[in-house]
Nucleic acid binder design. Structure first.
Lengths: 335, 335
DNA sequence: CTGAAAGCGCTAACAT
DNA sequence: ATGTTAGCGCTTTCAG
């Protein structure tokens, strides 16, 4: 195999007997190129096996056609679903994504932002359960567009796409209340994260109030992590508070609490009901299957990326905070 | 907020009264810089809030410190686990990853490779159940290093990290045979993919042969997709062949066949045993829990990335095809 | 230990 | 419709 020399736009220009500028125009399908010279150039491109260098292109044009994506954890099926939607639309619009796991940790988020800025990404998609002040100021100071996917901003400063968590939890809590539970728990990985504190718990309270049932702080439970195991460990606390139903903000955690109950002989849904919120595939794999809020996970990611492409092209966007429709799916973990 | 001007290395040089070259050396912690001038430079860097432009750096140095990662689907928990390992180690070595979903489709893989090459990635991690000839020649013709993570190459041409699938399935099939099943099925999403055809099915045959049981082609089942639903749909075919146990090559598919059996009144494991292969968290979430081959998923990704960093630095690597240890975890889906 | 200068490969005015 | 010419912001010889 002969030594591989990098063939540049200059080589193409020489072989095609045109200028670099013309080659550039031809490969970028610029209108101002006579069809026959375009063909001539493209033929040489093919013959020399020329492939444009995006790095040089990026330096010259100040556009990298890559966007940064900050995700808590790809391993979390909720976020993974969004990521897939993001990548598909990115590809459709010729962008690539640099994916960085943050674990929802501010330090890691800041570090990621920094390297993403260095890499000159054209835009940013941020996923996380909260925007800390440091992250906020960091993202506000750069002029590259950002959109929050499945993530809220209490200050309402960034573009975002979500569902109406407050209304969704309200509706869901109502169902559990209607089934006769007056001690329904609310469990989340982190209670003080904005998405829970400002939205979901508010919806939970709304339902309680409408039903004339007092809100009890002791019925709020924290799993610490968005994992199956951390949900599984919650059983004793739940039992201690004589809870008969639970609204859970994450499917893995919900599966954990449900299995934990079942495994200890507590019948779900007869003696204990659990409802979850993401409608990931997992909700259909457990037995009983999990009743859940339904959200268009893939679409949240897809719409976020679509929004970002508009922002990156300085197009007008009608809605700054997009709310996608949600639903309630009744399965077997509730009566 | 004042207009944001990009501050360049030149600005730093001017303010620090040194040359660009010195600034470059200082920020890259090159040894040949007097400590006090380094400090002087770094102070100015901080004061001006200078941040190096990685694109320019990439063009000048021909190193982008980003690696391309081709993954079938981030939504698949097996690959997601590898991806997390990859990203963590990448971050540790100051690399970023461009993630692209391929769905294991050759067309998409080729397209992804092409744009990744244009982006001048320093290395490539490829995940997929098979290397097609086109993909092979494409990857061979570039001089950037590639490592296959959790993916085999029948021609043994690329660096890789895996477990010994053949031995693992051999051991697993033995267990099922020992339990008295003489019609054990082998099910995979795609039977003719190299990882199945050349490794797992061979292990399955080895066990059959050692047990003196004839191999029957009719006991090989294909799910078509690596999804829960496609596994769920397999029940009738399995029942028709009077199979009493199954070795499944993917956790989601395994959950599907198991639940499908249970849902139709067939008791697992009493009347039907199922064993799976990835030990993703899902295996603990189903009821009964799934017996499985255990593989160090995160580590497969992590080790792959570590290997790649060595390759990118032209360091010697002792092993070209790394095999990580596997085990067998007996849970409740088998006797 | 530091500076000068030449690119890296391409895009984008500005001409023509 | 096409060519000329500057850079984009940095690294890297090569001198000194």
């Amino acid at each position: 195999m002969k030594k591989k020399e990098t063939v540049t736009i200059y080589d193409v220009a020489r072989e095609a007997s045109v200028s670099m500028a013309t080659v550039s125009r031809a490969i970028n399908h610029n209108h101002n190129v006579k069809p026959e010279t375009e063909k001539k150039v493209l033929d040489v491109v093919k013959r020399l096996n020329y492939r444009p260098n995006d790095v040089a292109r990026g330096l010259a044009s100040k556009k990298t056609t890559t966007v940064g994506v900050i995700i808590p954890n790809v391993t979390n099926s909720y976020f993974a679903a969004l990521a897939r939607g993001i990548d598909d639309i990115a590809e459709m619009y010729q962008y690539n994504i640099i994916l960085t796991n943050s674990d929802g940790d501010e330090k890691k988020e800041l570090k990621a932002l920094n390297t993403l800025y260095s890499k000159q990404v054209d835009g940013l998609i941020f996923m996380g359960n909260e925007i800390s002040e440091a992250v906020r100021s960091d993202m506000s100071n750069e002029r590259i567009p950002v959109v929050l996917a499945g993530s809220v901003d209490s200050q309402n400063q960034f573009n975002s796409v979500n569902i109406d968590y407050r209304k969704a939890v309200y509706a869901q809590t109502n169902e559990l209340l209607k089934n006769g539970n007056d001690r329904v728990a609310f469990v989340a990985s982190h209670l003080n994260r904005s998405i829970n504190k400002d939205y979901r718990i508010e919806g939970y309270k709304d339902a309680l109030r409408d039903a004339g049932i007092p809100f009890r702080k002791t019925l709020l439970f924290e799993a610490n992590e968005a994992t199956y195991d951390s949900g599984y460990k919650l059983r004793n606390k739940l039992v201690q508070e004589e809870v008969t139903a639970a609204i859970v903000s994450n499917d893995d955690v919900a599966a954990g609490v449900m299995n934990s109950m079942s495994d200890s002989g507590i019948n779900v849904p007869e003696q204990f009901e659990v409802a979850t919120s993401d409608n990931t595939k997992l909700t259909e794999m457990t037995r009983p299957m999990l009743s859940t809020i339904t959200q268009p996970l893939y679409d949240i990611g897809a719409v976020s990326m679509r929004l970002l492409t508009k922002l990156m092209k300085n197009e007008e966007v009608s809605e700054r905070n997009i709310l996608l429709p949600f639903g309630l799916k009744d399965r077997n973990s509730t009566k």
